[in-house]
Structure formats: C-alpha cells, structure tokens
Amino acid sequence: MKYIFFMGKGGVGKSTLSSLIAYKLAKRGEKTVLISLDFAHNLGDIFNMKIGNKGVRLEEHLDIFEPDIDRWVEEYLRNTRVLIKENYKYVSVFNLDNMLNLMKNSPGIEEYAILHLLYEKTKALADMDYLVVDMPPTALALRIFALPFITREWLKTLLKLRKEILVKRERIANVHGKEKFDFAVDEHEDKVYRNLKEQEEENAFLLKLIQGANIIPVTLPVQLSFKETERILKKLSEFKLNVPFVIVNRVKNDEWKKGCVCIEDKEVKTFDDFEREIKFQDFDNIDSEILQL
C-alpha cells in the first residue's frame, strides 16, 4: 500500500485536493482509501453526503472515512478508567479520576488519537493500493508526524527501565518464590512490559508508515503561506520524511514564482485558480505524477 498525506495551512485546499486525487486514483482502478484526520471534516461537503466514522464506499474502488476523533478520545479515557477499576486493588479510584480529567485536556492526546485511528484503519485495510490522508492544519499535523519519533525514544527508555525492574524482581522471586509477591516477574506476565511492547509494535508500524509515505504540502501563492510551507519543509526534513513536491494551489499566472524562492529546491506543481477549474479531468497530470511515486 502507498500512502499520500496532504498537509498545509487551513483553507489551502487540502481536502479538495485529496478528494480529487483519491477519486482519480480510484477511477484508474486503484483500490483507494480516503481518510480525513481533520477535526473539521469537510469531505462530506465535497462529496455532498454524510460520511462518518463507518465510512462510505463511493465508487467501486473508493472508500471514504471521517472518524470522530473527539468521541474516540472520550471512549479511550472511559476504557482506561474501567481498566484501572478492574486492575487496582488498593488505590482509591478517586484520585485517578482527578488525574484522568487532567489528562483529557493535556496536550498530545489528540495526536495520539489520530495516529491510533490511522493505525487501526491501515491495519484493517491492508489489501488496498492507496491511502490518501487529509491531514489537519499544519501545527497539529507536524505534531502528529513528530509523535512516533518522540514515542520511540520514550518507549526505549521505559522498556530499559522496566527490564531493570523485572530483573530485580526476578532476583527476589528466585529467593522467595513467585507466590509471595503480587508483582509480575516475567516479561510475559508483566502487563506493563507487555503493554510497552504492544505500544512499541504499534509505534514501529506507524513510524514505518510515515517514513514510507509521501507527504505533499499544499500552499497558496502568497507570502504567508510560503513562509509556512518553508517551515513545514524544514521540519519534515529534520525527520527525514519524503516530500516529493509541493503543490501551489490557486495560481492565476506566473507571478507566484517571485515569492517562491524559499521552496526552490522542490519541484513545484501549479494549478489554475481552484474555484474556477474544479473539474477533475483537468488534473490528469497530477495523478499520473502520483502514480509514479
């Protein structure tokens, strides 16, 4: 499966472009999935139908999803709470409720929710040819791309520390026998260790997905939008992610080139004014470009 992510400032036309490309790929006979990971879903508006979490099969080869991220976060927190109640014997749950409420609003939970949804969908739809992703606006999108890298480092640290703990427990259990303590000794028994391993697996999958994906920044031919694209490119190159080209949307004539110095080293695809030219057949060149990626 090939992955194509569209990202950029809000309102540059990511959703429209990703819809367009997904549609064209599907028309060519490629089994394609289109997912919106933006909180403000607008794929439904583009295709003029209700899409939602369960998704819609639009053409023979095109599936579209608009997962409800907020609801997923809430459910996730609820599940965590249930799990805590199930697993804890001594600690009063009161404190933890407090803590979970705190966590609901702590930064990072949305990024994780989005990545996790992406993980689930990708796993479930492994036999597809193309996954086209409509990313949320720049800041959040960049944090999403960064998260697996940060997570990898943390998991490495935590797994090492956890192993140290398990070794110490093993030493003690070797003397006292395992029955005496209610802590797990074995890597397979220790739920924390297992959970860390599961997280590591999921994270490795996501990392591979992101590192193998083509990320296409979309920009408008204006200074502000270019500046932002410059930042996106810098950030993405820090993580060594693939950016095959940048799309400059809504270009009327050649004047945009003057402001384009900052992204000179990337090949730039131009479009005529988006509002006027919204006809899919006008984009023949772009989907063949993408097919070559």
């Binding site: 799990l83 990072g108 998260l147 802590f183 924390v192 860390l196």
Partner: peptide
C-alpha cells in the same frame, strides 16, 4: 513522555 504512553500504562501500574 507522550500522554498516550502514560494513559496506556496507568491501568497496570497500581504498585508503582
């Protein structure tokens, strides 16, 4: 660490 790691581990960390 990322909050996801924390949330995912908390249910199993009573002792800690």
């Amino acid at each position: 660490p990322p909050v996801s790691i924390t949330l995912s581990l908390i249910p199993y960390m009573e002792r800690e």
